[in-house]
Each structure stands twice: as C-alpha cells, then as structure tokens.
Computed example of a mutant assay.
Amino acid sequence: MDLSLHLSRAPGLPAAGIPRSDSFQRWVQAALQVARRRRASELAIRLVDAAEGRELNHHYRGRDYATNVLSFPADLPPGLRLPLLGDLIICAPVVAREAAEQGKPLRSHYAHMTVHGVLHLLGYDHMADAEAERMEALERKALAGLGIADPY
C-alpha cells in the first residue's frame, strides 16, 4: 500500500514521549488495512500543545477545551480522485494525560488515537450505537494486529 504521511510538531512542543514517525506510519497503515483501503493514501498528522488543541476544537467544533484527536477529512470536489485523506490533529498533552488516567502505555494510546482518527478520515463515525460498535471493532482489530491491547 502506497502511503504518504506528513508528520509535524507544533513549535515548542516537547519531543519527550512523542513516538517516532515510523510508528505513526505503522499505525496509519494498520487502520487503512482493516478498513480495506488499497489505494494510495496521503494524510498529514500535526502534533499540538493544549493551547492549539483547544483553539482548533473551539473553532471547528464549538467546544472550549483541547481534545485528544481531531479529524479533518479532505473536501475534494466530486469526481476528483486524489489520494488525499485529510488531516489529523493530535493533542500531545491530552493523549499523555488520558494514558496516565487510564493506566495505558503512552505509546499504545497514541496508536489508538491515530487509528481512531484515520478511521474518521475514511468516513467511519461513532454517533450512533451501531456505527460506534463497527468503528470500535475495526480499532480493536487494527490495534491487535500491532500487538496492542483492547483500548476499551
């Protein structure tokens, strides 16, 4: 599977605890595989601090707090077939806090948030119970394939 991943980190965001780019690459590929996406894919992941995460969540979702992952699917014109899936924003301090609160390895929680976000880019959602069950099953399958325990 041809994957182009653009990973960036907000200026001033400490590198401590943030996985390497090859890890994000593996996690994205795992999500694409369980979703049966075989076409070339391109996406960007930006790792942000709490201030930027809060600003983006407020601007795009009307919620005044930083959240773990935001997904912005590519809004391509009908009929245009490019490999662009969209962008993920992962808030490093929120992911670290959640991992600690839930007693999970930080790396595993990053993997989960990456897989979760990629599935959103592919059109999966968790608003209705049936959708949530399907999406969570795909997350479990992708993470199990990576040797990561059930996040739920």
Rank of each mutant, 00 (worst) to 15 (best):
R140I: 04
Q102N: 15
L138N: 10
Y65N: 15
G145K: 12
A74I: 01
R81V: 15
P93D: 12
A111Y: 12
M113H: 13
Q33M: 11
R37H: 09
K141F: 14
V94D: 05
D64W: 04
I90W: 03
L88H: 06
L146C: 13
R63H: 07
H59N: 14
Y65H: 14
D87G: 03
P73L: 01
T67S: 15
R46Q: 03
E131W: 02
L85P: 13
D2M: 06
M135R: 02
L119H: 09
S71R: 03
R36E: 14
G62E: 00
I18L: 09
R37C: 11
F72I: 03
K104D: 14
A31Q: 13
V28A: 11
H6A: 12
K141A: 14
E52R: 04
P11V: 06
P93R: 13
P105C: 14
S41Y: 12
Q33S: 15
L121P: 03
A99C: 05
R61G: 09
P105M: 14
V69M: 07
P73C: 12
A132P: 03
L143E: 13
P11Y: 02
P151G: 06
D125Y: 04
A132I: 00
S108G: 13
A149E: 15
A50R: 13
A144I: 06
R97C: 07
A35I: 07
Q29D: 13
M1V: 10
M127A: 10
E139V: 04
A149R: 12
Q102I: 00
A30Y: 03
G79D: 11
L76K: 02
Y65W: 12
G53D: 02
R140Q: 06
G123R: 08
A137N: 14
D129G: 00
F24H: 08
A74F: 02
I45C: 02
L121Q: 02
M113F: 10
P77H: 09
V118Y: 11
L56V: 12
